[in-house]
């Protein structure tokens, strides 16, 4: 019988978390919650990366996690600045208020 936690266990957790974040990003209309859902997708990817790093026996995955954290931090600061700016213009956080932004 199998007696170990396989790589597939961690990959499944990461995939489910990514999909939950994706569904939230599509359905929620609050701009802040939408960005929170992108962070949730980041979490799923990070679990995958660390699991690959462990099961491959090298450190490339963990180094990648550091860079993903850097990008997430800068994305959060820029995006939240933009959200504050958008909120001051229309006085709502509804993403549908910006429907007229078409190509």
């Amino acid at each position: 019988m199998m007696q170990f936690l396989a790589l597939q266990h961690y990959l499944a957790v990461g995939a489910i978390m990514f999909v939950i974040g994706l569904v939230g990003f599509i359905t929620r209309r609050n701009l802040i919650v939408m960005f929170l859902c992108t962070e949730l997708m980041f979490q799923g990817v990070l679990i995958n990366l660390v699991a690959f790093s462990r099961y491959n026996g090298n450190l490339a995955g963990q180094a990648f996690v550091i860079f993903v954290l850097v990008i997430a931090a800068s994305e959060a600061s820029l995006a939240l600045g933009l959200v504050v700016l958008l909120f001051r213009q229309k006085n709502t956080l509804d993403a549908d208020a910006w429907r007229d932004l078409k190509w």
Binding site: I26, T27, R29, V33, L93, D94, D96
Partner: peptide
Amino acid sequence: AECDTVSREPFHA
């Protein structure tokens, strides 16, 4: 706000 209480296209998403 209304944007928090009504979600957009939950079935399709």
